[in-house]
Design a protein around this nucleic acid. Structure first.
Lengths: 192, 192
DNA sequence: CGAGAAGTATACCGATCTGTATAGTGAAGA
DNA sequence: TCTTCACTATACAGATCGGTATACTTCTCG
């Protein structure tokens, strides 16, 4: 990534997240990045591609933070589940004043053929798979066999997590991730 | 509401919900409603006002459906909580292929001073208050006294509900409202 | 040295954006 | 009958949209 491209993607990411994708034009991105539109189009080819790289970049940074937190968590599977909610709280404090960028982008992108659509649904599917694998370990440590119970537990954790993302983004009540974490523990206990 | 205004608001509501607010221009609204732009601006004054009435209209229809379902539910307070999730499932089947219009609109409106912002946060606050009053009745039937326990239960129900809205809108897994309803029952039982 | 990559500055394109203006039509009601 | 209301049709304004074109500079690297 060239310096100009980096500045452009940084500016675009901030502007897209704060104001929405359709509300931000390429002229504004170029101006705030201190870059000309020619550089933008030489590097990215289209606004659509900038959107894709914006979402991909957030996804990668989120997964990196999560991997880090999971690696540092106590080895018990249930602790890993709680670490996901802790990671989300930390992420939201640093990058999440306006909620989940994937949920927000989904509100603006109606066409499933849009290249950014796969990034959005891909992250949600990945999160569900993560919860599913954690749920399996909680229910049957050591075994990696699928079960309807694990799927159900994983989906419940996903509900709590997505709910916390929205409650936080809309400011419905304070510390949504803390409550979701507590409820996740209660759900895990109920399965034990 | 004059006939032309009604057609315009219907068209705007459908287009805003399906494609997003910024992606739909007033020319398109006018064309699909079979109305001229002059009629649009004579009746509504601005696009911003059309957005406000779009969200207000959905809010009112949702509350009407919910009131109806709550009135028809068994008298036990816990049944009323479950009826909220049932109402959401019914609403989503009829009007919710792209998720919650308030969450979606929030993704596109960054300015808290935007007149639509109050409609969005107002609906979420109202839902939290509904869950809170139901939680109080569940915990202490007949009494209307506030308690931290009731607030906590209400927020947990809110988490499950918002989570189901998102999981349904993004298509993360099938029947999110059914699962949320089952989990709500489990949470209610745990408080009993 | 010379080529190529990365960048700047500026102007332009056609389309679309919200919003306004002008002129006229048809119908309902005092 | 005459006014008022709701509406149509069309044209336009100024700004912004995504995207392209031309010409020049600056730096690195073989």
């Amino acid at each position: 990534m060239t310096p100009g491209a980096g500045r452009a993607l940084d500016a675009a990411s901030r502007l897209f997240y704060e104001h929405g994708i359709h509300a931000v034009g390429v002229d504004r991105i170029a101006a705030e990045a201190g870059v000309t539109k020619k550089t933008l189009y030489d590097r990215f080819g289209s606004k659509e591609q900038i959107v894709v790289e914006y979402l991909t970049g957030r996804d990668e940074r989120w997964r990196a933070l999560l991997d880090e937190r999971l690696a540092a968590a106590p080895p018990a599977p249930a602790e890993h589940v709680l670490a996901v909610f802790d990671a989300s709280r930390a992420w939201a404090e640093a990058n999440g004043a306006r909620g989940c960028s994937m949920i927000n982008a989904h509100a603006e992108i109606d066409d499933p053929r849009h290249p950014a659509y796969a990034v959005i649904t891909g992250q949600k599917a990945w999160m569900l798979e993560l919860f599913t694998s954690l749920a399996r370990e909680v229910l049957a440590p050591g075994e990696a066999t699928a079960s309807e119970t694990a799927d159900r537990l994983a989906r419940t954790l996903m509900l709590l997590h997505e709910g916390a993302l929205v409650a936080h983004g809309l400011g419905v009540f304070p510390d949504a991730f803390g409550l979701a974490r507590d409820q996740a523990r209660a759900v895990l206990d109920s399965y034990a």
